[in-house]
Computed example of a mutant assay.
Amino acid sequence: MTLYTVLGVWPDEQPVSVGVIVGEHEVHGGDDSAFDVGLWAISVESTGVDEAQDLAAEDCLTQRRDDEE
């Protein structure tokens, strides 16, 4: 398994991945004014880029639901 940092945006209330970087990285900045919920970055362990994007999107949705409760 490899650690990936997935970067994304929130158009139409759904997390969409826009990039994946190998390794765990802190992400700062970015202009979130064009997206309803903003930008996101999450590090996940996975077997590849596609799985990392899927896991990150699931994590985003889970965190959003938890934040709303």
Rank of each mutant, 00 (worst) to 15 (best):
V6N: 08
D66S: 11
P15I: 01
D12A: 09
G8S: 04
Q53M: 13
F35M: 03
V27W: 03
H25Q: 09
L3P: 08
D59T: 09
R65A: 08
V49M: 05
T5M: 04
A56P: 01
V6Q: 03
G30R: 02
E51Q: 05
S17P: 08
D54Q: 14
V22G: 14
S43N: 10
E45A: 15
L55G: 01
R65N: 08
W10C: 00
W40M: 07
G8W: 01
V37W: 05
V9I: 11
D59V: 03
M1C: 13
L55Q: 03
V27C: 02
V18T: 10
V18H: 00
D36K: 13
M1P: 15
V27Q: 06
D66V: 08
A41P: 00
C60D: 02
V20H: 02
P15R: 03
V16E: 11
G48E: 04
D54W: 09
P11M: 00
D12I: 04
G38N: 03
E58I: 08
E69W: 10
V49N: 06
D59H: 10
P15K: 01
Q14W: 11
G29L: 05
E45C: 10
D50P: 10
I21C: 11
S17T: 12
Q63F: 06
T62G: 08
V37R: 11
L39Y: 05
D31I: 13
D54C: 10
A57T: 14
V44N: 07
T47S: 15
G29H: 03
L3F: 14
L7F: 09
T5I: 03
T62K: 14
D66R: 12
G23M: 02
E45D: 14
E68R: 11
T62V: 12
D36N: 11
E26K: 14
A34R: 12
Q63C: 08
D67K: 08
P15G: 02
V9P: 02
Y4W: 12
T62R: 14
L7H: 10
I21T: 14
V49W: 06
L3R: 15
H25Y: 09
D54R: 13
S33G: 01
Q53T: 10
F35N: 02
E58M: 10
W10H: 02
A52Q: 01
I42N: 00
D50M: 11
V49K: 07
L61D: 08
Q14C: 12
E13S: 13
A57L: 06
W40E: 02
I21Q: 09
C60M: 10
I42Q: 05
S17D: 04
Q14S: 13
E69Q: 15
E69N: 14
T47G: 15
G38C: 06
T2V: 09
L39N: 06
H28S: 11
